[in-house]
């Protein structure tokens, strides 16, 4: 060390040595800084990739669900629109010259995602079958719970329990 210190006056003749050492030290600091930055960037990249993967998976699942939902011809209606569907059902019964005997809503306690009704009407066999095939509106999801058809006096007495499904 003393030898080196004794040599310091001659360092003027070693500008390149000084420059090399200073540049080396500076670059060492820069490299350590960029290395830490690179590691952070890499961690961010991994996080972004994971996020993208999650998003893509979610979007793919969503699309699959959408495609699955499209396979169904009927859709649940908004709760506010149940009465409209009921109106259409009554209209369709009357339009086929069927005699509406009764219509009542069943207790809503047990029902999920919808409201259940019991309807009774009387009419010819063909009209009754037409009514049952095109029941209610075109796209409202209506499920049949129970159907009872009896032949009396040449007429078909039909009692149907159905449910209008809501979102």
């Amino acid at each position: 060390m003393n030898d080196l210190l004794a040599y310091i006056p001659n360092l003027k003749e070693h500008k390149r040595l000084l420059i090399n050492v200073v540049v080396f030290i500076l670059l060492s600091f820069l490299v350590s800084y960029t290395t830490s930055h690179l590691l952070i960037s890499y961690a961010d990249l991994k996080e972004t990739e994971e996020k993208m993967e999650t998003m893509e998976r979610f979007v793919t699942e969503y699309k699959q669900k959408t495609e699955k939902a499209k396979e169904f011809p009927f859709r649940p209606v908004a709760s506010d629109n149940v009465d409209d569907v009921q109106t259409k059902i009554i209209f369709s019964v009357q339009a086929l010259n069927l005699q509406l005997s009764s219509l009542k809503e069943l207790p809503a306690k047990k029902e999920q995602h919808g409201r259940a009704y019991e309807i009774e009407f009387v009419g010819g066999y063909n009209e009754t079958m037409k009514c049952l095939q095109k029941f209610g509106s075109n796209d409202a999801l209506v499920g049949y719970r129970k159907l009872n058809m009896q032949s009396k006096d040449g007429k078909i007495h039909t009692k149907l329990v159905y449910k209008i499904y809501t979102k």
Binding site: F58, V59, Y62, K63, K65, T66, K68, A69, F72, R75, P76, Q112, H113, G114, M129, L132, Q133, L141, G143, Y144, R145, K146, L147, L160, K163, Y165, T166, K167
Partner: peptide, 27 residues
Amino acid sequence: EAQENSKQLDTELQVFELAAKEHQYPL
């Protein structure tokens, strides 16, 4: 968009499942 509509879609699919389960296919 998927996030916004996902809940509603899930509900719809649940309803479809429920409807399929409850429907008695009388015709």
